[in-house]
């Protein structure tokens, strides 16, 4: 990793964050968790979480393993439904609409791009991987699909590596490439919320930086929820940072305040890498 690149993105992130938070703070939040609790059988995964995410901002969620970060993401697109023991209480609101009781979960999931840490290339060609979701909602025009595929693969910084072999199986790409393919697929429906769970886990630092730059641009169009184990990544990208520990929201607030003037001592220690 080269230091100049990091510092420049920190500056970029901070610059954008202060501008956008001030202009959007007044609006009602794009995504709001209110007293959200989730349990798997007797095990509590999330306890009374309340966070508001303004439109076109990045919320960084940090916290040690098993603190409920991924569970929080699953409540947003209701994939929590697939875990039969899960019980959800409280509310998740997407642009004012209650998510936990929403009838049409398919429409909901199309509004939310989701990237989980394990890269999954579908057993289709690279092209069809990205065109999968658009096809399912009836986009069939070749020109339109071509445009979507190229845009999403460029946004996920995979285009240059695969542009000459779009008919290759997605499952045959390397781990890091498959992870970017997963990101491209998540972008294919131009979601209003993009949830990233450890998206950079299998990706080299240089490519990660490039993706982070793209994400900062995508923020103009979507709200981003970024779960990360790299506190520096949260520092570079997030407008707000939420710190989860042991199923509870310890605290959340603006990036700068969280890193420099945390209200709780444990937050400062975690964000500075002294506890984990």
């Amino acid at each position: 990793m080269n230091t100049p690149a990091i510092t420049s993105s920190i500056l970029l992130a901070d610059g954008v964050s202060s501008a956008s938070t001030s202009s959007h703070q007044m609006n009602s939040p794009h995504l709001e968790f209110k007293n959200l609790s989730v349990s798997y059988g007797p095990k509590v995964a999330l306890r009374q979480i309340s966070i508001q995410v303004p439109k076109n901002t990045v919320l960084g969620i940090v916290g040690p393993a098993n603190s409920g970060k991924s569970t929080l993401l699953k409540t947003i697109n209701r994939t929590i439904d697939f875990i039969s023991t899960a019980r959800v209480e409280g509310s998740v609101a997407l642009a004012g609409e209650e998510v936990t009781t929403m009838k049409n979960v398919y429409a909901l999931r199309r509004r939310i791009g989701m990237v989980f840490p394990l890269p999954v290339g579908l057993p289709l060609t690279v092209y069809e991987n990205v065109a999968f979701a658009p096809r399912r909602i009836g986009v069939h025009g070749k020109a339109e699909l071509d445009e979507i595929v190229e845009r999403c693969l460029r946004d996920s910084v995979l285009w240059d590596e695969v542009k000459d072999r779009l008919d290759m199986l997605g499952t045959k790409l390397s781990g890091g490439q498959q992870q970017r393919l997963t990101l491209a697929r998540a972008l294919s429906l131009s979601p209003e919320i993009l949830c990233l769970d450890e998206f950079s886990i299998a990706i080299d630092p240089v490519t990660t930086m490039k993706i982070e730059d793209v994400l900062m641009q995508l923020k103009e169009k979507m709200t981003i929820i970024l779960v990360t184990n790299l506190t520096q990544q949260a520092r570079r990208m997030a407008d707000h940072v939420a710190f989860l520990n042991d199923s509870e929201l310890v605290e959340w607030g603006e990036n700068e305040a969280m890193f420099n003037r945390p209200k709780k001592e444990i937050t400062g220690r975690y964000l500075n890498g002294e506890f984990g």
């Binding site: 989701m114 999968f132 399912r136």
Partner: peptide
């Protein structure tokens, strides 16, 4: 199973997932 979950995350219904990913394979 993670192929199915990837499809569900994209808003594909169970039947769409079965028809496009599970059955062909």
């Amino acid at each position: 199973r993670n192929f199915r979950e990837a499809c569900w995350n994209l808003g594909a219904s169970k039947w769409q997932t079965i028809r496009t990913i599970v059955l062909p394979n």
